[in-house]
Design a protein around this nucleic acid. Sequence first.
DNA 1: CAATTCTCGTTAGCTGCCTAACTATTCGCC
DNA 2: GGCGAATAGTTAGGCAGCTAACGAGAATTG
Lengths: 190, 190
Amino acid sequence: MPLLMLKDLPRYECLLEASREFPELDPSATEVFLNLLRTGDEAFRVVEAHLAQHDITQGGFSVLMALWGQCQRAGRELPLSPAGLADRTGVTRATMTGLVDTLERDGLVRRAPDPTDRRMMTVQLTSRGERKLLKILPAHFRQMAWLMEPLSEPERKTLVRLLTKVLGRAGETEGRPAPATALAATIGAR
Amino acid sequence: MPLLMLKDLPRYECLLEASREFPELDPSATEVFLNLLRTGDEAFRVVEAHLAQHDITQGGFSVLMALWGQCQRAGRELPLSPAGLADRTGVTRATMTGLVDTLERDGLVRRAPDPTDRRMMTVQLTSRGERKLLKILPAHFRQMAWLMEPLSEPERKTLVRLLTKVLGRAGETEGRPAPATALAATIGAR
DNA sequence: CAATTCTCGTTAGCTGCCTAACTATTCGCC
DNA sequence: GGCGAATAGTTAGGCAGCTAACGAGAATTG
């Protein structure tokens, strides 16, 4: 998530001071938020850099993983539709078209028309794609393990628990704070 | 961070099972990693959606914040160079050129040549930019507070502490796991 | 059955982000 | 003082993400 976030996170005292000017500013909440985005971004960059060594992007890697997970689960060679891939990876279908284009160009994936529904396509991992994935995965796993090494096992459990709380809140569509303007509120009500 | 990550995080048992096939896979580390990226992404999307209501992107917002923070700290109207902005926001200078282009087009920021060094430019918040920022900030702060509401004050401290540990590890350039191929290792050694 | 409606995949056009190369200017050093 | 090295900003080209609009095909429904 190449997200533009302040690189040097503000110290807590600064947040505290700013909260005097802005009563809406919750210093501890802001601190957590900034740390969360910053850390997520940095972790992302670490694996992104590794994947780049194999000439593959995070997006492409996710598609390969989704396809491969599908294989593993259902015997063998079960292809997926672009729409299914988009849902699983949390990206729009238009974006998935581009990703599959790139992967197909590189020979890691194959497109074929669905025999039963002529609107649909199927996307399938090629053997080249599977080989590439198997070459990447060990180091990828090592990287994640290395990244989390500073955390003890109980700390990991705690971290997951707290993150899950935030994730649950982020997923709520109801009860969000007011979107600031009456116009936005009207439009935003979908 | 529009990052393509699996939307439905794998259950722990699946990770455990996969670790039998891949000894490098550390289930708890992987679980933390996936949760971190997913939660960071979701939190990012929440504020991004809010900023979009004000016709501004996360990138543009970060630039305005950096400029405004500069104002606050140093009396008044202290401009910053594009390079300084790039450093503060963790983006390349080429990217900053584009961001400032957009902000200048929208009249939120003004470029002027530096009088002492003709290579340099200065970027300054316009009054329109400052007004816009002040209009956005209250709801922005409310949003962060709302997002973190499920966490108690001690939980927030804990979360920040654990995230900081991971962030520190991610920042280490030494001792990363082997990049899988000798070629990559040679190149990666910069 | 015909007409509407829905779904799937793609295209077009925008933004943000990157790297690499380029220009202009300043700095360091002999 | 003049020449090479370093630095500031931009440009060019690429990828990934988005929305909106489209055409082809399937499903629903009168």
